[in-house]
Design a protein around this nucleic acid. Sequence first.
DNA 1: TTGTAAAAATATTTTCTTATCTTTATAAAA
DNA 2: TTTTATAAAGATAAGAAAATATTTTTACAA
Lengths: 143, 143
Amino acid sequence: MSILFSRQCEYALQAVLYLALKPQDKLTSIRELTEKLEIPYHFVSKILQDLTKKGLLISHKGPAGGFGLKKSANEITILQIIEAIDGLSFMNNCVLGFPECSNDKPCAVHKKWGEIREVIHQMLASNSILKMAEDTKKPQYFK
Amino acid sequence: MSILFSRQCEYALQAVLYLALKPQDKLTSIRELTEKLEIPYHFVSKILQDLTKKGLLISHKGPAGGFGLKKSANEITILQIIEAIDGLSFMNNCVLGFPECSNDKPCAVHKKWGEIREVIHQMLASNSILKMAEDTKKPQYFK
DNA sequence: TTGTAAAAATATTTTCTTATCTTTATAAAA
DNA sequence: TTTTATAAAGATAAGAAAATATTTTTACAA
């Protein structure tokens, strides 16, 4: 079961981090991407199209076609990917699910969760996907 | 969309926090509970049965029947409820969804998320549901 | 012109959430 | 003590959402 983000969003992150390690001008096919990452072809293809429409990726059809980052990998954050796929509702909603939870009517962990949420936000917004991908031991992205 | 926990789990928490504010010997019917909290009767009824089987609640059939906490509200934590319904996989899985993420092959936020997770654990385990429910402005639990 | 690869539309599968209906237990009334 | 109303237990089904697959179309480089 996924934690904070949808499966879609997780795949999007994996794909983008994979692309971040490639030269920006080189396109990568869905085939390569999904085989290396071992994630479902058609589902991911839909996700990449979404990211393209949202202006985060570029795509080209035909032979030697594929996907690439639209901007340089050091200008993109994980949070931007998450925002494009899942939206930022996890930054607003009550973690215990109380529909009316707010500063006026706080749930039992409202304040504490607010602090935690800020740290999570930091974690997702403070580093570029380039740094993220480089910090990571690369072998994990390949089989 | 829910954040860390399933809808089931959220309802369970809301129900248990509601029960925590009642005298322990008094039983509460699903009807009252779901009407006051405005949550779905049948779904919640299933959840309460689960919590009963797991030994967290007691139940009685028949007139004046209903559910109550098995132990005193100051001996139960939110984490115990979560563990019973969703399990603790959120404490182990990679937040970005990398299946092989571990200390050996950490994802981009492995370390940071580990710290955050500890704070979340603290938040859920360090106070009893009695304190949780009392700290909360009570009006929110009633309509 | 041909093969490749994304785009798009549609369908299937699975999982999660919710509802319906029947059964069983039990307290209280007759 | 039998009846009756109440409320949980249980089984099953319906609905919705999320995840994944299939098929067709479109673009384009060689």
